[in-house]
């Protein structure tokens, strides 16, 4: 399929632009067709709902990552951050059961805590990299280790489990639905719409594009570069906290293996969606489709015996490389004109 797309992209410049905007969407449609051919059950309501619900975690985090990457940054700490926030939420909610009981209040406090921690963790990433003038890659590599080790420490090397009664109260946030649409999917959609508006229609979003495109130009255009960059990390932290809030009721536990490699999946979703890894160009809807694609691949592999499910990572990796290859091929053609 990839070679077909490539030849189509190179036929004419008009096609080229269409391809760039629609590429990820067409690829997703292709995956859905493939899934249907492989197994009739693919298009069943239950299966689709399953795909979208699972895509919601990575998708919500990836919406935040779209801001960071568009503004020329990178955040490697999101998976560890999610694990750390999960752990902190569980510890605090379990503690509160003794005083407040296992009610809505306990869950709400857990949710507020999650938001505060997400904002704080994002602010740490942003401020250390901008004020300390350290590459975001290094800073978030460091905080990735820190957050991961904090959750291991809190769990004492084992697993933190949410109080059973709280689980019952909290359960609808993951398993519930409104008008038949699962709550995580609705949250995902809301986050994506908010992200789209913020990135494409507001001065803040424009500034993200400008900074990612050329930081010096942004500086000379009277943009508070450090402030805007820090805010992108805060948005990323907020997105991680929202994803965590809907993740905790799913498993009801957190351990050192929670959220492992989520950062790579989130970045992959962003890149597959057409956002430039070097910054300056970002697309929220592309990211949403990228996240759904990654989940769909896993789902299709589950439904077929042709390829082992254990090769999920390999197929995803292949898709990422092909996506980036198509992007860079596009660049070369433009330059050589």
């Amino acid at each position: 399929m990839s070679s077909l797309e490539r030849s189509e992209a190179s036929t004419s410049s008009g096609f080229n632009i269409d391809f760039k905007a629609l590429g990820p969407f067409l690829a997703l449609v292709g995956l859905f067709v493939l899934g249907t051919v492989i197994n009739d059950a693919f298009l069943s309501g239950g299966n689709l709902s399953n795909i979208f619900t699972r895509a919601a975690f990575i998708g919500i985090i990836a919406v935040g990552a779209t801001f960071v990457i568009t503004a020329g940054g990178i955040d490697l700490s999101v998976g560890s951050m999610a694990a750390f926030i999960s752990g902190a939420m569980i510890v605090v909610m379990n503690t509160l059961v003794a005083t407040l009981g296992a009610g809505i209040e306990t869950v709400l406090i857990g949710v507020v805590l999650s938001v505060l921690l997400g904002i704080a963790a994002g602010a740490v990433n942003g401020l250390v990299s901008t004020k300390g003038k350290i590459e975001a890659f290094i800073v978030t590599l460091g905080t990735m280790g820190i957050y991961r080790s904090l959750v291991t420490y809190m769990a004492d090397g084992g697993t933190l489990s949410l109080d059973f009664d709280v689980r019952g109260v909290y359960r609808p946030v993951y398993y519930g639905d409104i008008l038949g649409i699962p709550v995580p999917v609705l949250v995902f959609f809301a986050v994506a719409v908010a992200g789209y508006v913020l990135l494409n229609m507001t001065p803040f979003g424009r500034k993200c594009f400008a900074i990612g495109s050329n930081e010096q130009v942004a500086r000379y255009s009277a943009i508070h570069v450090d402030r805007v960059k820090t805010l992108t990390y805060v948005i990323q932290g907020l997105c991680v906290s929202v994803a965590t809030i809907i993740y905790v009721p799913r498993l009801g536990s957190a351990s050192s293996s929670t959220g492992v490699l989520w950062e790579l999946e989130a970045i992959a979703a962003v890149i597959i969606g057409g956002t430039m890894l070097k910054g300056g160009y970002g697309r929220i809807w592309g990211t949403v489709i990228g996240a759904i694609m990654l989940t769909t691949i896993g789902n299709i592999l589950n439904l077929t015996d042709a390829i082992s499910n254990y090769l999920n990572g390999a197929v995803q990796g292949l898709i990422i490389i092909v996506a980036v290859f198509l992007q860079s091929g596009d660049w070369r053609r433009k330059k050589s004109k």
């Binding site: 424009r206 942004a218 000379y220």
Partner: peptide, 23 residues
């Protein structure tokens, strides 16, 4: 190097310095 965003078209370049004027 510091004046224009070369990978963008004219509109975002023109309004970048006076962005608050446009909303």
């Amino acid at each position: 190097g510091s004046g224009l965003l070369l990978n963008m078209d004219m509109r975002p370049n023109l309004t970048l310095l006076a962005l608050e004027k446009f909303g």
